[in-house]
């Protein structure tokens, strides 16, 4: 139970500390921009900025699904594997035409998500364990399907999907931003969106109010699977190929981006606009480190440390009664 005594505040009193705390991601955002533009001359070039957005869009799309899940208090470690599965499927089924292949891999991703959701809600197993299982299990499926080899597509039209752009905006970025806006609208204006907040904020209260808790959670797992599949398809299109090791660390990056964006680990709080902030900061760090010629391993180190620090902050500002 959360202690309620600490939150009695006078009405109409604009709380600057609270505002800063909630939007600290934008502060970090600005600091990152300043830091990298000082350190690397090319950082603020239009080309590089487009590049950051493009690189971020894959992680970003998955972050949408993950934000939904985390708002309702859940988690998905299998997104990276689902991404790989849909990528190899879309390439593998290219002979049946792009629409069939795309549809099929979206379906496969959503199905894995649904399976995760069913195990979590109906069997009542901890989401962490369920998705730890599917993380490796789905990866196994990918290996079985590919026989450990990379699949390459000869269909040039497919690679044009991710290469296309609307005006100056690359298609993956556009898809990401549209989904982000739609996603935010759903979170704010639909009973599903509000239901997620209620479930994550106070599970008992949500059940007591007659909210169909299981349904919402399953939907979010499906959404997580779907977004992972979409990211996988776009990734496959970008490379016009799919490797079975694709997305090995992506679930980690996605989770870090989402919690960095301020979504609470135990649910009930968060939104997609701030997730966007988290995604872009992560994108900048990866890009900037690259420009600085720092080993890509450092990224992983930073992600891990960010994650642990965020858990610590989460705990410190919302201490358990002990």
């Amino acid at each position: 139970m959360k202690s309620k005594t600490g939150i009695m505040k006078v009405k109409d009193n604009f709380d600057i500390w609270d505002f800063v705390q909630k939007n600290s991601i934008w502060l970090i955002f600005v600091i990152c921009i300043v830091f990298f533009s000082i350190m690397t001359p090319n950082f603020l070039r239009v080309r590089n900025i487009t590049n950051i957005f493009l690189q971020s869009s894959f992680i970003g799309i998955m972050s949408i699904g993950m934000t939904y899940l985390m708002i309702d208090g859940n988690f998905d470690l299998s997104m990276g594997s689902i991404m790989a599965l849909s990528a190899v499927l879309v390439i593998g089924f290219m002979d049946y035409g792009i629409p069939v292949a795309v549809l099929l891999s979206l379906l496969a991703g959503s199905a894995i998500g649904a399976l995760n959701g069913l195990f979590v809600t109906k069997a009542g197993i901890n989401a962490f364990i369920v998705t730890l299982g599917s993380m490796l299990g789905v990866r196994g499926l990918v290996y079985i399907y590919t026989g450990e080899r990379a699949l390459v597509s000869s269909e040039l039209a497919f690679s044009e999907i991710s290469a296309a752009s609307v005006g100056p905006i690359p298609l993956p970025v556009l898809i990401f931003l549209i989904m982000l806006i739609l996603g935010e609208l759903v979170l704010r204006y639909t009973s599903h969106g509000r239901g997620c907040y209620a479930i994550g904020g106070n599970y008992e209260a949500a059940v007591n109010a007659g909210i169909k808790v299981d349904k919402h959670i399953i939907i979010n797992f499906i959404l997580a699977g779907f977004t992972a599949a979409l990211a996988g398809i776009l990734m496959a299109s970008r490379m016009n190929a799919a490797t079975p090791t694709l997305g090995m660390e992506d679930h980690m990056i996605v989770i870090t981006a989402v919690v960095l964006g301020g979504t609470k680990l135990d649910g009930g709080f968060g939104n997609l606009i701030r997730t966007l902030g988290g995604v872009l900061v992560i994108g900048m760090i990866r890009n900037g480190m690259n420009l600085l010629n720092v080993h890509s391993y450092v990224n992983m180190l930073i992600m891990g440390l960010i994650l642990i620090s965020v858990v610590y902050m989460d705990q410190k500002f919302d201490p358990l009664e002990e």
Partner: peptide, 23 residues
């Protein structure tokens, strides 16, 4: 001592250690 969630902490550490090894 800090009473953090062990799943997430060690999940983060998984990557920290991996990165340290790589470095």
């Amino acid at each position: 001592f800090l009473k953090l969630n062990s799943l997430i902490v060690t999940f983060g550490m998984l990557f920290v250690i991996q990165a340290l090894t790589l470095l």
